[in-house]
């Protein structure tokens, strides 16, 4: 394991039961993600991108092999320890934003900090900073139903980033957005990656996202078919 690595995946296999047999979603994956990377797992639907992200996010565990995330072996984590790992160190961005519908923008972003028992004043400052990063200071009291898709996803980014996690997992973050909003969001994430050195791992098949990636891992039928570092300069 490299000293700088944040995620190390070795010989990972993930199978799901389908009737009496199994469907193999991931087959022999070996990958390492280093701190500060802006990487993406790309590939067609059903290639295993989301499954890989779920395992890295400790929401699921491998059938065979290991996934070490921030020095924790995912398959050996109890549900409680996995929750602590996610709470303290991971941020999630979902395709459908997954904002809490009855909360305001402020409350949605504040939520991860409440779970960390952060004092109220510190919490408020952190939320306001996060709102500034994503340029939504004017929507502080709005509820998710009053936001556009782009705004909702920016709130989701702020929620993922507010606790300054080591790793952010973004599953198809631009799938429901138009080109302009997609670029805006990706620029925001790129800026945060630069400024805060947060590691981003995307699961996407959107060309707009792929253009921004600095590392592109192609999955096909649950196997890594290519892994390239891209120099955008």
């Amino acid at each position: 394991m490299e000293q700088n690595s944040i995620v190390t995946i070795s010989d990972l296999v993930k199978r799901f039961p389908v009737g009496k047999s199994f469907f193999t979603a991931l087959n022999g994956i070996n990958l390492t993600f280093n701190k500060g990377q802006f990487a993406g797992v790309v590939g067609p639907s059903g290639s295993g991108k989301t499954t890989l992200l779920n395992i890295i996010g400790s929401l699921d565990s491998p059938t065979v092999g290991s996934a070490i995330v921030l020095n924790e072996e995912v398959s050996k984590l109890s549900t409680k320890k996995a929750a602590v790992l996610r709470r303290k160190h991971l941020g999630f961005i979902f395709q459908t934003y997954n904002l809490l519908p009855v909360y305001t923008v402020f409350e949605n972003i504040e939520f991860p900090l409440l779970l960390l028992n952060m004092p109220a004043l510190e919490r408020k400052k952190a939320v306001l900073d996060a709102l500034e990063w994503v340029g939504l200071t004017d929507k502080i009291k709005s509820r998710p139903a009053q936001l556009s898709g782009g705004e909702s996803q920016r709130v989701a980014i702020a929620r993922a980033m507010v606790k300054k996690p080591e790793l952010v997992l973004a599953d198809e973050p631009t799938a429901n957005l138009d080109a302009e909003n997609s670029h805006h969001i990706l620029q925001t994430m790129e800026k945060l990656n630069d400024e805060l050195k947060t590691t981003f791992i995307f699961a996407t098949h959107d060309d707009k996202v792929i253009k921004y990636l600095k590392r592109k891992i192609r999955l096909e039928d649950g196997k890594v078919v290519s892994d390239e570092i891209i120099n955008n300069l």
Binding site: G57, L59, T79, K80, A83, V84, R86, R87, K88, L90, F92, F94, T96, N98, L100, P101, F111, P112, L115, R159
Partner: peptide
């Protein structure tokens, strides 16, 4: 979805 989000955000 909300329950899944709570869990993803770190609630047990």
């Amino acid at each position: 979805k909300e329950i899944g989000t709570y869990i993803a955000l770190g609630m047990t």
